[in-house]
């Protein structure tokens, strides 16, 4: 399809040039022209207009059905928009969803995150919270181990309610790692895991109080292994909200130990372990 009337790079330039201040400013840009997609036809191939998504899709012709992307139609706070992505298509025996890629088409850096899944991850459904600079489309692409590809998108309108204001508590990076696992699992049945950690996820695009750009400082990688085998991995980018939250699944075959690790771009990391009880 022909490339439509918008230039992501231009938009990005304008954003950067206009000295986007604190996170609050995120939503004030929501009125940028040309970003309101209304037609369903446009929405259905939003991934085609995004180089980064196109690269993941490659030569495949992705299916739209089977991949769900849940986001509010309207969000009053662009600094943390709750998102759930999942594949509910039935797969051939032995096939499994290998990766899920998320993009924010209207953010300065469209990559949000890539989730690498394994059969140990049980159910291919992940929730997180993302930053959306302005009203835009969020794109998801998923791939299975045997090469099936899905793509979908959702438009989200960002308004910052005049009643909202950001508090700027700076806490220590990689502190307060939290993990919640089910009390027990049934063998090979997925159970829900939740994780949360304190981290500014500083985008590198924002000015501090002194007018200097705050350096980029983000968690880049999060891994989960069960008895030494990688079960779930997430590559995170600047569009993941401060204090990254991840909800996903594990389906252990037998009781064992799960290790959760967060690595940031300064080489620092945090680690938590939990016993998984299979009954």
């Amino acid at each position: 399809m022909p490339h439509p009337h918008r230039h992501p790079t231009l938009t990005r330039r304008r954003l950067l040039g206009s000295g986007v201040g604190g996170l609050l400013c995120l939503g004030l840009l929501s009125a940028a022209p040309g970003l309101l997609f209304s037609s369903a036809a446009l929405a259905s191939d939003a991934w085609q207009r995004l180089d980064a998504a196109q690269q993941v899709v490659g030569d495949a012709s992705p299916e739209g059905d089977g991949l769900t992307l849940d986001l509010p139609h309207v969000s009053e706070d662009g600094s943390a928009v709750a998102l759930t992505v999942g594949v509910d298509a039935s797969l051939d025996d032995g096939d499994y969803v290998e990766s899920i890629h998320l993009f924010a088409a209207g953010n300065p850096n469209p990559e949000i995150a890539v989730f690498h899944l394994t059969p140990l991850a049980g159910k291919p459904e992940v929730s997180t919270r993302v930053r959306l600079n302005e009203t835009q489309e969020v794109v998801a692409v998923a791939r299975s181990a045997e090469g099936k590809v899905w793509a979908t998108s959702r438009e989200v309108r960002i308004t910052v309610s005049g009643c909202l204001m950001r508090g700027d508590d700076v806490q220590e990076s990689l502190s307060n790692p939290r993990v919640r696992v089910p009390d027990s699992f049934s063998a090979s049945q997925p159970g829900e895991i939740r994780t949360l950690i304190t981290h500014p996820m500083e985008t590198g695009l924002r000015e501090g109080d002194d007018g200097e750009t705050l350096p980029r400082h983000i968690i880049e990688r999060f891994t989960v292994s069960v008895d030494g085998d990688i079960a779930f991995e997430a590559e995170l980018h600047q569009s993941v909200s401060a204090n990254p939250y991840l909800r996903f699944h594990l389906a252990p075959e037998a009781s064992g130990e799960a290790v959760f690790e967060w690595h940031d771009d300064t080489g620092e990391s945090a680690r938590e372990t939990r016993e998984l009880n299979v009954s």
Partner: peptide, 29 residues
């Protein structure tokens, strides 16, 4: 939520009038 309406004003008003008797725990906490 991690932030709320008039947060800065509420927080400093609470401190002035009620000391530490109001505690707020947000989403990330």
């Amino acid at each position: 939520k991690d932030n709320f309406s008039k947060q800065g004003l509420f927080t400093s008003g609470w401190e002035q009038l009620y000391g530490d008797s109001i505690e707020w725990v947000g989403l990330s906490g």
